[in-house]
Computed example of a mutant assay.
Amino acid sequence: MKVYKAISMVAKDMAEQGISKDRRNAQQGFNFRGIDQVYNALAPALVRHGLLILPRITERIVTERTTQKGAVLFYVVVKAEFDFVSTEDGSKHTVTTYGEAMDSGDKATNKAMSIAYKYAAFQAFCIPTEETAIDADSEVHNVAPLNPDQLLSAFTEFAGRATGEKELKDEYAKAWAALSGYPEHQEKCKDVTGIRIKELKQPA
């Protein structure tokens, strides 16, 4: 399988040339590498060593959040799979990463996809990074805490996606604690958990 040799050769190039960290997060005072810098550094090495990176988004979750000033933010999480494919023999290896980002407009998904790609590259090719270098960190969002209704809604949404009883119970314990002082919400949380557990126990 020549895909691993190709990955190794690209990693060697990245170790020798690196990727400059010249983008600056002025609000929090650190430098980071932008996604365009990663593309520009990787593209020649990928062509030179016959390696393709083919992305595939398998999950996308969008949540609306509110800043302390009352503005709406879209918080997006994507689960992405990247097939690293050798052009010589067609052999491949799949890397899975997650990307998370916030935006007040229509760019949150694009940001999350870029972050997923960037960290897949960082990890697969062992590109050194001194700090958390994600594009979304070039912006800072002060998010207001969720109110009880939002907490219950978020838990209900999670419960509907849960595929295992243990993960559901773990999240239920967190939600119950977060809803301390709101017994009606806690009871609804308990009801949702009970219903979902019954659903999970039903034969497929």
Rank of each mutant, 00 (worst) to 15 (best):
M102Y: 13
D83G: 00
A178M: 10
L152S: 02
D103I: 01
S91Q: 13
G181Y: 11
L146V: 02
Q37F: 04
D36A: 10
N25S: 15
A41F: 10
I127N: 04
F82I: 02
A116E: 07
A6G: 06
E81V: 00
Q27N: 13
D191G: 00
M14K: 01
R161F: 11
V140H: 07
N142I: 07
S8Y: 09
N31C: 05
T94G: 09
A178Q: 11
T97M: 07
L54N: 11
N142T: 09
V78G: 06
A108G: 03
V95I: 14
K174Q: 10
S180F: 11
Q186G: 09
V38M: 13
H141W: 15
V38G: 02
A177R: 04
G194L: 05
K188E: 15
H141M: 02
T63H: 11
S138P: 01
H141L: 08
I53A: 13
A178R: 01
G194A: 04
I195M: 09
F74V: 03
I7C: 06
T66W: 05
R60D: 04
Y172K: 07
G160E: 15
A80S: 11
G181M: 12
K107T: 05
G70I: 03
A159V: 03
V76I: 14
A144N: 11
M1E: 14
K107W: 06
L73V: 13
L73T: 11
A124F: 01
V47I: 14
G90T: 04
A162S: 13
V77M: 08
K69N: 13
K166S: 15
N31A: 11
Y98Q: 05
P44W: 08
P148C: 12
G194W: 07
I197T: 08
T156Q: 11
I35P: 07
N142C: 01
T58W: 04
L52K: 10
N147I: 12
A6R: 10
Y39W: 13
F32T: 02
V95C: 04
F155V: 09
I53E: 10
E64D: 12
E167P: 05
G50L: 02
E171C: 00
V140G: 00
I127A: 07
S86V: 05
A177K: 13
H93R: 14
P128S: 08
K190W: 12
K201Q: 15
I115F: 06
V78Y: 08
A124Q: 15
S153R: 10
F155W: 08
S8A: 15
P145I: 08
S20D: 14
T129A: 12
V62M: 08
E64V: 03
E199I: 02
V3Y: 08
I197W: 09
K69G: 02
T67C: 05
R23G: 12
I7E: 08
S114D: 14
K5M: 03
T67L: 05
D89I: 00
K190T: 10
T97E: 15
F122L: 09
Y182W: 09
S20I: 15
I53S: 08
W176G: 00
E171Y: 04
A136P: 00
K79W: 02
K5F: 06
A45V: 03
N25Q: 12
M1V: 12
E64L: 09
K201M: 14
